[in-house]
């Protein structure tokens, strides 16, 4: 059973975001497990302005495609090239090497605590 760090915030769409500046964004182990083996990720471009709650990318597994939602608004400062090159990292290390992008936060949407997220996802 995966640990959901209390230091992170979560979305109902199964992303996580930390409180750093810029903030790092990824998907939760629950989402990674549901997706299966990830084979392709499409991330927003560095410099792009993103808005919380909107679709900013895609995560594609052997069996399905799911949309990636921005948990916060702001400007993308970095994308994880390692995960673009090796998408399986999303599943094997969702909180670490499988992070997706970093964003200079201008506003946040509705975010859940670890406990709230676990209750939402049923994990």
């Amino acid at each position: 059973m995966a640990e959901y760090p209390a230091t992170l915030k979560y979305t109902k769409e199964h992303e996580w975001v930390d409180g750093e500046s810029p903030a790092t964004v990824g998907i939760t182990p629950y989402a990674a497990e549901a997706l299966g083996d990830v084979v392709f990720v499409e991330l927003p471009e560095v410099g792009a302005t993103i808005e919380h709650g909107t679709v900013v990318g895609e995560i594609e597994s052997t069996k399905s495609v799911s949309e990636l939602y921005a948990p916060v608004s702001g400007t993308v400062t970095e994308v994880n090239q390692a995960v673009v090159d090796d998408p399986e990292l999303v599943g094997s290390a969702p909180f670490e090497g499988g992070w997706l992008f970093k964003v200079e936060v201008s506003a946040t949407g509705e975010l859940l605590t670890a406990d709230e997220y676990r209750a939402h996802a049923g994990v």
């Binding site: 299966g36 083996d37 597994s61 052997t62 069996k63 399986e88 599943g91």
Partner: peptide, 8 residues
């Protein structure tokens, strides 16, 4: 069963 551990 869809998968046990990993499709791949």
């Amino acid at each position: 069963p869809l998968r046990y551990t990993s499709d791949l």
